[in-house]
Write a protein that binds this DNA or RNA. Structure first.
Length: 214
DNA sequence: CGCATTTGACCTGCGC
DNA sequence: GCGCAGGTCAAATGCG
């Protein structure tokens, strides 16, 4: 959205009396012979109404100017954000191009998943956007397993993948994967013996972990 | 001693 | 069908 795309002016008619047409002028001439007393009464009423209308129109006009200014500021901020997003996206694509030859073409789904994570971060989403897309494309898979993700800040010096999220988890495995130098940890819910919930903790940057709940 | 964590082995699924 | 990589299991180990 650009400010040039939208006509921010409300195009308020601040002087409606300009647009009186010729027929109305003729009609007024025809009534010139009427008594002056009636005319004066009507004139007094008209003047009071006109002054009120002009006052109202002035108020609306000022409001219109203020809104135009606010809209201009909003458009400017939007353009700045859009530029920032474009920069981040281009940086990300460069990074992907550099890493693509290293990452095996196998486990394609996993690699795509990881890039979606980065995209989600760039887009400012805390929830992966891919999950929404997948839900429309592959509804049957989502019926089987519902995976949600959360991003968790961590210290760069903290090598443990233990996340205190208020639930009881038992770590049952840890694995180093090719697409990420830092290991990923696998946890099972230990809140109840029959609890089927699992979570996977992956450190995607030194200060950020992604937790995938299954 | 009991529980949680670690870690190497095994299983499973996907791509070629 | 084979090889590879992610996911899981279970014995070993550590800690309170």
């Amino acid at each position: 959205m650009d400010s040039s795309w939208v006509n921010t002016s409300l195009d308020l008619n601040i002087n409606p009396f300009k647009h009186v047409n010729e027929t109305q002028a003729q009609e007024s001439k025809e009534f010139e012979g009427y008594s002056t007393r009636v005319e004066q009464k009507v004139q007094v009423k008209k003047e009071a109404g006109v002054s009120a209308l002009v006052e109202e129109l002035n108020r609306v006009n000022i409001e219109n100017q203020k809104l135009t200014e606010v809209l201009g500021v909003v458009c400017e901020k939007y353009l700045t954000l859009q530029k920032h997003l474009a920069d981040l996206t281009s940086k990300n694509s460069e990074k992907e191009l550099m890493t693509t030859p290293v990452i095996s073409m196998k486990r394609k789904a996993e690699s795509e998943d990881y890039s979606n994570v980065i995209n989600a971060i760039n887009g400012g989403n805390t929830e992966s956007s891919s999950s929404d897309e997948d839900s429309s494309k592959r509804p049957q898979e989502n019926l089987k397993t519902k995976i949600s993700r959360a991003y968790f800040p961590t210290n760069a010096s903290d090598t443990s993948l233990v996340v205190r999220d208020g639930y009881q988890w038992r770590k049952y495995g840890q694995k180093v994967t090719r697409d990420n130098p830092s290991p990923r940890a696998y946890f099972k819910c230990s809140f109840a013996p029959s609890c089927p919930v699992k979570k996977k903790v992956i450190k995607i940057t030194p200060v950020l972990m992604i937790i995938a709940y299954d």
